[in-house]
Amino acid sequence: MAHTFTYPRDVKTVYYFGTCLVDMSFPQAGMAGIHLLRRAGVEVVFPQEQSCCGQPAYNSGFLEEARAVARAQIKAFSRADWPIVVPSGSCAGMMRHHYPEMFANDPEYFDVRKFSERIFELGDFLHNALHVRYEDKGKPVKVTWHSSCHAMREMGATAAAKALIGQLSNVELVEIEREYECCGFGGTFSIKQPEISAAMVADKIEDIRATGASAILSGDCGCLMNIGGAMEHKGVPVAPRHLAEFIWERING
């Protein structure tokens, strides 16, 4: 399902879709993403009418509610055809791939598809569309990386994230065993099947611990909330960090 996207050139302005989870719980990560985009010389527009991509309802079997919320987003980003950058592979995957599916039998299908083609994951966009270069001003540190399943399998954004981390000269990236495996979040899955989800995140934490890293980076706050919450509950001293926030701190010393 991962595709090679066509990236826009000479980008002057982008829309930013912050996601509901970032909005509520990780706004600093969201702001870091905006700062990274602006640092790359791009004007960022953040429509205040935006809210959520609709994935929670879509994945839970409530298609009509998901469609209603999706329509609201499409409308909120309709005044210009700028690229829409999303600091989450999962929400980006929803808007890029699943919006057209949700409206496959509707008259607005072609408009939805056009909207979807403007969606990019933040790390992927910074690396492949803006070709950013970073200079690390932080102290030596060892980190590990977790790709959300959708960042990896729907947005193909893993390589870009690692390339960005690779630009930070004092950061050592230690790859985790079973990097391909889901952390057990899965939105409502984690509360519909809490025991399975708990078993998955417990294994993920063991793999993270085994790397000896002091921070676990990801481009998705859902995974970070799951992994971070479980590590905190268990007393595992590894910091969960959104990639954008981590980079912003490193390049600002």
Partner: peptide, 25 residues
């Protein structure tokens, strides 16, 4: 049961973006 409760930020991204003067349209 296996995680600490989610935390909610005192100010949302919507608010922070507005306060920092990020263009909203």
């Amino acid at each position: 049961s296996v995680r600490t409760a989610p935390r909610f930020a005192p100010k949302s991204l919507h608010q922070l973006a507005k306060e920092e003067g990020i263009r909203h349209e």
